[in-house]
Design a protein around this nucleic acid. Structure first.
Lengths: 200, 200
DNA sequence: CTAAAAATAGGTCAATTGTCCTAGAGTGAC
DNA sequence: GTCACTCTAGGACAATTGACCTATTTTTAG
């Protein structure tokens, strides 16, 4: 169906633009131009800017859910799955250098605007928190898995923030190694632990 | 002098508003209303919005320089000075819950806008990095002090980000304790590891 | 006191914003 | 073919934006 395609094109373009420029700095005209449609047509699919925002958030949520499900299938080792999460910092390094973390920056921006969809955006952060919590509790059911999850999530957010500010590849690699090492330390059975990385 | 007072009032108001709402979402009218002056008067003191931004960045820089100088005077122990830095997360918790870290959020926003003053804002982050580097090299001149500095800076940025998203006091306290503990571990001579102190 | 300078007020401007509206073009069912 | 429906285009709208301009008022200097 052509309509669903147009709608999806709008969401995809808005997703990119919200990431690259921020929600507040992206106008209807920007998105319409990016999809090469008229503003009139635009308003047929989305009546308000907040509607697009919500659609983008839903898309991001479902994209991340797919990604996490994939990791769940790919590896039976929770430590390896956590490592997949941490390695996003390296895989997406170029974009993070330019625009920061898509989840963190949107969360921040909407929180600052006290935007109605702020809680909605927090659900993405919550998705990661809950998924990481599950991984850590699989590693060690006695540990405070949620605290460990928040630790890794917060760690990666910090690395993304400084990566954007300083664009220092060595820093990112070093921190990723440290996180992986930390994960290995809280899960002695894991094979992630590599010699030489422990000490900073 | 009345003029310098008005100018300073504008800078102070802009500083607050840029922090609470972000630079892009704060208009001339917002600032003028906050200081109770006319827009015309406003343009007498600042010809463009970017001029105010630069003035605000300079103010933030000099405020932080003062703060760091104060800590330098207050304690002869580098580990204790680092602890002062980390404890900002708790001291300013209320504002961080609402608006995030003033330095991190501005850095992010300007980087995303590819704003001309982005590099200028990064100087504040660089100020902390360099100051922390000095503290760590005082602790152990053989260690990679800058890597340690970036580690603590990144850690605190991550905590601020998640604090804003989840507003979880326990999480913040836990992470702060962990950072202080980590600092104590890389500086065996420090007295920070004393039980109970970490929980301040 | 007076004249120059600094400071303030408020109007105006073009551009952009989000939103709404109507007029068509395309498409499928019957 | 006709009719209903989906989709598209583009104009119009009030509000807001950053910016400029010219009058006043206030302050300062001589």
């Amino acid at each position: 169906m052509k309509s669903s395609s147009t709608r999806q094109q709008i969401i995809d373009a808005a997703d990119e633009l919200f990431y690259a420029q921020g929600f507040g700095e992206t106008s209807f005209a920007d998105i319409a131009k990016s999809v090469s449609i008229s503003r009139g047509n635009f308003y047929y699919h989305f009546k308000t800017k907040d509607e697009i925002l919500d659609a983008v958030i839903e898309k991001r949520l479902s994209d991340r859910e797919d990604m996490l499900r994939n990791w769940d299938k790919m590896s039976g080792n929770p430590a390896e799955r956590i490592a997949c999460f941490v390695r996003i910092l390296i895989v997406n390094q170029t974009k993070i250098f330019a625009y920061g973390c898509p989840v963190g920056t949107l969360t921040m921006e909407l929180a600052k605007l006290e935007h109605a969809s702020s809680g909605n955006a927090n659900r993405i952060m919550g998705l990661f928190r809950d998924w990481l919590t599950r991984q850590f509790s699989e590693l060690d059911s006695d540990a405070d898995a949620e605290a460990q999850a928040l630790h890794v999530l917060s760690w990666s957010q910090g690395v993304a923030t400084l990566a954007q500010a300083f664009r220092d590849e060595d820093f990112v690699r070093r921190e990723v190694d440290q996180i992986l090492d930390w994960v290995g330390r809280v899960s002695p059975s894991s094979s992630l632990r590599q010699p030489g990385l422990a000490g900073i």
